[in-house]
């Protein structure tokens, strides 16, 4: 795989580093949305209220995209597919190259990281994101009477996760793969390891770190781990023949792989028609997975 960050991977010890990736099995996913709620709670995602949701200013880091296919006038024939969507942590991230102040950069463990303190809020990254997963703080959502939700009262603030920054208005945010958990897990592994050269590269055991969405997923559709470890569960899933990445043709090289959904349908029931794809907003057809 060629990435913008090849030099990272070619460095000595590069394969001893972690490469965080996620696999989502669409066969297992029921679209329940528990992951969305878990993510909100874990990452202090602000609640913004109906008015802002209506103007497409939701702050969710994770969402379930829905697509309809079939005869839209006949409700019985409509089939629905859905896809959990969050930051794909692309190896060729379009958002990273356009940020003028390097507020969003790639980490050595393959994350597309976001430094809130550095962000000036040009929103260029969000425009250039093919997955539309970046969220902008249009207002100050905490301690603001206009957003009288949990972040505006002392009791509600007890819900906030102390390991995660509450973002200021004017900055961009997005899924971080629960970086606070990753850092915690990495440090614990290093602390527990012996003080040797190998210890410096100590990795947490496969499955020891779970992202909030993964932890909450009732069907275990989300698997997270290290791609540099060929034996990790996620590596095996990445090698699965069902694995695909979203919008492959944009060449963003995502760190999230989806495992395509297998459906037992007759050929004439499947109406996957790219040409119809989205002439009207109601006519969304299924995104072809492969």
């Amino acid at each position: 795989m060629i990435t913008l960050w090849d030099s990272h991977y070619k460095e000595e010890n590069a394969n001893r580093l972690i490469r965080w990736v996620m696999a989502i099995d669409l066969n297992k996913c029921t679209g329940c949305g528990a992951c969305v709620v878990a993510c909100n709670a874990e990452n202090n995602v602000p609640v913004v209220g109906k008015k802002e949701i209506m103007t497409h200013r939701d702050m969710h880091w994770m969402r379930i995209d829905r697509y309809y296919s079939g005869d839209l006038d006949n409700a019985e024939n409509v089939s629905v597919v859905f896809q959990p969507m969050m930051c794909q942590h692309c190896a060729n991230a379009p958002c990273e190259t356009v940020c003028p102040v390097l507020a969003t950069v790639h980490t050595s463990d393959g994350l597309n990281s976001m430094s809130y303190n550095r962000c000036v809020g040009t929103r260029y990254c969000a425009n250039n994101c093919p997955y539309k997963v970046r969220r902008f703080n249009w207002f100050k959502y905490h301690n603001n009477e206009n957003f009288d939700f949990h972040q505006n009262n002392p009791l509600g603030k007890l819900v906030l996760n102390p390991d995660v920054t509450v973002r200021f208005r004017g900055v961009m945010e997005k899924c971080s793969f629960c970086v606070q958990r990753l850092q915690d897990g990495k440090l614990r592994a290093k602390v527990n390891a012996k003080q040797t050269d190998a210890g410096a590269f100590a990795k947490p055991k496969d499955g020891a770190i779970k992202t909030a969405c993964q932890q909450t997923c009732p069907t275990g559709a989300i698997v997270f781990g290290d791609l540099n470890d060929p034996e990790s569960e996620v590596s095996k899933l990445f090698r699965d023949e069902r694995a695909f990445t979203a919008l492959e043709e944009v060449k963003t090289l995502p760190s999230v792989s989806y495992l395509t959904r297998i459906r037992n349908q007759k050929a004439d029931e499947v109406k996957v028609n790219h040409a119809e794809h989205g002439h009207k907003e109601e006519e969304h057809t299924e995104k072809h997975p492969s």
Binding site: D65, M85, Y131, K132, G278, H284, K287
Partner: peptide
């Protein structure tokens, strides 16, 4: 209206 119709 760009890549992902769910986010149009």
């Amino acid at each position: 209206h760009d890549y992902v119709p769910a986010r149009w």
